[in-house]
Every structure is written in C-alpha cells, then in structure tokens.
Design a protein around this nucleic acid. Structure first.
Lengths: 202, 202
DNA sequence: GATATATTATACTGCGCAGTACAATATGCC
DNA sequence: GGCATATTGTACTGCGCAGTATAATATATC
C-alpha cells in the first residue's frame, strides 16, 4: 500500500493526520459541548475508529484538552495577539472585532468553545468545567495586566480603572458568545461592540 | 395515616407538594444544565421516586419546561417587571440590578438558567436548546419594544437606536450570567453594570 | 366493609455511553 | 523472507441513563 516512501517509524503507519483529526474533534466539541459530544460523534467526524483515537489522543478528557489548546493557538489566538496593539483602545477594539469574526465564522460553529463547552455540567465533567473557568479567568487577567500597563504609560486617564475595564470588556465578549450561539449575526454583534465602546473612559 | 382530613380527591393522596418539588427540580437544572441533570439527581433533590415524578410532571423534557415556566414567574420575574419602570433608563438600571441579584443569590445556583441549561447540546436536547433560544429572544424583543415606546415618548434622544440599545443591554446581561457562573461576585458585576451604563445615549 | 382510584416503592428494561480486548494488517529492520 | 512494532477494524464490556411494569398502599365513594 505504501508506494515506496518511508515514514522513518516502525510499525504500521498512521492513516490519518493528527492535527486534521484534532481540528475535526474541536468542531464537534464546539458545536455540542463536552458532554454533548459522544465518542461516536467524534470518531465519525475525525474519520477514525475508537482504538486509533485512544492511541493518538488518550481518553475523551485528554482529547478535549488537546482540542482546547489547539483552539487557543488557532481560532482564538487573537485573544493574545490583540494585546500587542500599541494603545489600550486599539487592544480592545481589535479584541471585540476579532471575537465577533470568530463567533460568526461560517466555517466554525457559532459562539465560543470556552464558554459553551461546559458552562455547567454533571459530576462527570466537573474538572473540564473548572479548567474552562480557569482559562477564561486567565484571559481576563491578561487583559487587565495590559490595561494596567496602559495606565502606567499614560495611555488611559487617571480615573480609569483597569480591572473594571477589563471585566467589562470580557463580560461583553462572553455575552456576544451567548448571542452568537443563539444565532446573532455579525452585523448585530458589530453594533453591540460599537455601543459598548461608548463607555470608553476619556 | 390521614388524620381525619379529606383531600376532596379520590385515591391515595400525593405525599409531596407540587410546587416545592418543582422548585427543587429547578435548582438541579439550574446547577447542572438540562443534560447534566439526571433523573436520579432530580428525584433525590425532589424527595420523590420516579413514578411519582412521571405521574406529576411527565417526562424529563416536560418537567424541565414546567421548571422553566416557574423560573420565569419566580426568580426571573424581574425581567418583565422592570419594563414597567417609568423611564427607559430606569428600566435598564433595574434590569441590570435585579439580574445581578439573581445571578449571585446565595440561595440559588450562580448564573442564569436560560443561558446555562442548554447553550449547546447533543441531539437529544436540541428542542430544549431551541426553546431556550426562543425565550431569550423574546426577552430581548420585550426590551426592544419598551425602548421603542420610550423613544416615541421622547424618553430617549432622537439619535438613539432602540434595537441596538436593547441588544447591547441583553448582551451585557448574558455576559454577566457567564461571569456569575464562573464565580464573579455581586460587587464585580455591579461595577460591570456601572461601566455599561456609561454607554447610555444622552 | 367492599370497591374504585390515585399514589408510592421496588425492581426492571433497553439503550447509548466511554473505554477495551483481540485479531488482522502494514510498515521498518535484519 | 522473517520478525518486531505500531495502527486499524470489529466486537465486546460494564455502566449510567430515561422510562416503565407491577404490586403495595392510602384515600373517597358506596
């Protein structure tokens, strides 16, 4: 079957690409949530069978964490990238704009994996729920630190409160994720972002 | 066992109170979501056994809808009540204030049932997910109509857009629900509401 | 007291779930 | 070619799930 090429590895070669399969799994988790995604759903979407999944990614929880890492490095990478903008206002504008793009990208399920994968859960998914809580909190912390720096740089007025501002912006983003999951359009969310920025400290 | 009282109904009398049991079921759905709440969880919390639950409330989906109705008439009744405030600004202030109270009430699970019960789901809960989407949309529509009326009454400036404003306020509330489910405190959410109101059209 | 009726308690059913045993297969190495 | 090794395909396991059959029990009606 192998037409002369060599893989450099012993044993039967893997018949699928790890990252492509992980991307498919990510889409399933994104659409159905952690508990709602069954192993049948996952293997069907990934185009592989169960033993291959377990050999390559471990159990369901381990697969989900790998998908989550890939989410943060892929579709959600804007959340880190936006912090590099030169001004606080620029950071937040880009954050909202890119979040809206992601939430309404027709190539991926609506909404945000980190919000909808396990906002609540039964006992079986409790550790996943906590992991998502922690990652969302880390996002907020990253923005808060960026805004603290901005204030120190004189990029925010003296009466501005970086913690409050970061919490406000993140709350808007979470709300947009819910609205997107409910079917809100890109334009509708853009108008929300525009409204939200009216609260910007001057 | 019956000490001389009569129920007026034939057959063995029900040994539990319908509304009290429904309240307990509501709390379980609120905390674990629709799919995450098992019938064992529900019957244990309600203090009844399965056949009693099925006789009184129908199946799991029917029980959930009854719990949802009770949620809207109880903990979430502020959403309709607030629309009665005399001014648009008063409506929104009360809406945010009462939402925060509910999201962080120590007597009930954090967050909002309508957001976290089934933001996404497997195939089995698809109708529930859609029902929640529809009810959330109805909430937004109610606020939009109230703000349209406010504008007609001269209670909002001519450049204000009721649809945009309603969508913005609802997005904030959804975001607060996510933040509350993640452990945000009442004070933190109050500060978010304060920030949010800075965007109010003048 | 006898009967009809409604609720309760226990135990069951069938199914979908996550995870796995096992044999077949495809490669590298010698 | 022959062996070691890794992946694949099929079929299985045990468990938790929603829903139910059945019998016992507590009431109203006669």
């Amino acid at each position: 079957m192998n037409k002369g090429k060599t893989t450099g590895r012993r044993g039967r070669p893997r018949a699928f690409n790890l990252d492509e399969a992980l991307d498919k799994a990510l889409l399933v988790f994104w659409q159905k949530g952690y508990e709602g995604a069954s192993l049948d759903d996952l293997t069907r979407a990934m185009g592989i069978n169960r033993p291959s999944l377990y050999a390559a990614f471990g159990n369901k929880e381990s697969l989900f964490r790998k998908a989550l890492d890939r989410y943060e490095r892929g579709p959600s990478s804007f959340a880190r990238e936006a912090l590099k903008e030169p001004t606080a206002r620029g950071v937040v504008e880009l954050l909202l704009q890119e979040a809206i793009k992601m939430h309404t990208d027709p190539q991926t399920p609506p909404g945000c994996l980190m919000v909808q994968a396990a906002l609540v859960s039964g006992e079986g998914a409790d550790t996943i729920r906590q992991e998502l809580n922690a990652r969302r909190a880390a996002d907020e912390l990253g923005l808060r630190r960026r805004l603290i720096r901005a204030k120190a740089e004189g990029d925010l007025p003296h009466n501005a409160n970086p913690a409050d501002l970061a919490r406000y912006v993140v709350t808007i983003m979470r709300g947009m994720a819910v609205q997107a999951a409910s079917g809100a359009s890109r334009n509708e969310l853009r108008r929300v972002a525009h409204m939200a920025l009216r609260a910007w400290p001057e």
